[in-house]
Amino acid sequence: MIDHNDSRPQSDRDDASLDEARLRQQAIGVKLRQMFDQVVNEPVPDDFLDILRRADERKGGA
């Protein structure tokens, strides 16, 4: 976006928008990790371990 009313030199504006973009990407990154970690931190449903135990027994009997 070009702001014609901005009197700062072009390079300053570029730096500022680069910083702003970096800040936004960092914020998105933080939230992305939070979203993922939320599921990681959920208790694992029992069926996961049940299924694995049954698979284990199936092989163990062979």
């Binding site: 993922f36 990681v40 931190n41 959920e42 449903p45 996961f48 299924i51 694995l52």
Partner: peptide
């Protein structure tokens, strides 16, 4: 827990994601 989280981002639907994670685990 990590497989569940990854599956959730692929499937969107939480139930389908757990099915996928269980299949992958097996």
């Amino acid at each position: 827990p990590h497989l569940r989280a990854f599956a959730r981002t692929l499937c969107g639907d939480a139930t389908a994601a757990d099915d996928l994670a269980q299949d992958a685990m097996l």
